[in-house]
Simulated scan of single mutants.
Amino acid sequence: MGFHTFDASRADKLERAGRRYRFLSAEELLWALSLSPEDTVADLGSGTGFFTDDVAPHADEVYAVDVQEEMHEHYREKGVPENVELVTSDVSDLPFDDEGVDAAFSTMTYHEFASDEALAEIRRVLAPAGRLVIVDWAATGPGNDGPPVDERYSADEATDALRDAGFTIEHEAVRPETFLLIATLE
């Protein structure tokens, strides 16, 4: 399951607001993150920065983390907000201090990095009472959009993995094609 990355040559598809907001609105993401203006946030699998741009006005600093430098190049071309730092890194090896991030989120990328190592690393960098929001393609979905169903996780699988990594699940929503999880540190 999982562990592929989105083809950077198709990055323009990640900027189609009508399609992106169909599965997660900016308002829902901001509600789930519940940010304060002084928060430091990490967008895990930021791609072209589509959702990073929605979060940036509501945080002090945002790290746009992506394993593909080509995605950052696309983001630079469209313009990166002043409080956003582009970070080329795998989620399992984040270049942040222990407890240096107040919140983290992953929009449609959990299936690309899901592993015990990545969840342990997210836990390491999150501050006490840190919040992790995951919205991803559901293995229980029909597969009309997003990656093939066999590359996805179910909400139950993601919830179990987060609990095993020491997170508490605060909210879970399962939709026809996606799921949303809000997790906090225990």
Rank of each mutant, 00 (worst) to 15 (best):
P147R: 08
D156L: 13
P57V: 01
R20K: 13
S92M: 11
R175I: 02
E172R: 15
L14W: 03
E82G: 08
D39C: 00
T40W: 06
H111C: 02
F96C: 09
T184W: 01
A129W: 02
R16K: 15
D54A: 15
M1Y: 04
G45F: 04
A118R: 06
F96L: 13
V87H: 04
S46V: 06
E15G: 07
F96S: 08
S25P: 05
D53Y: 03
G166D: 08
A26T: 07
H72I: 05
A103D: 03
L44A: 05
Y75T: 07
A118H: 06
F113D: 01
R19S: 12
T5S: 10
R175H: 14
M1K: 14
F50R: 05
F23W: 15
V91P: 00
G2T: 09
G100C: 05
Y21G: 07
D97F: 11
P148C: 06
R10C: 00
T159V: 12
P147N: 05
T48K: 09
P176T: 10
V87I: 13
A155P: 10
F179L: 10
T159Y: 07
T168L: 10
V41G: 00
A64N: 03
F23V: 05
T88Y: 08
M1S: 09
V174S: 09
G2W: 07
N144T: 13
F3V: 00
A59N: 02
L86G: 01
A155V: 15
D7G: 05
R124I: 01
D12V: 10
E99A: 15
G166R: 09
H111W: 01
T178M: 10
R10A: 07
G100Y: 02
E121S: 12
F50P: 02
A104L: 04
S92K: 14
T109I: 00
D136M: 11
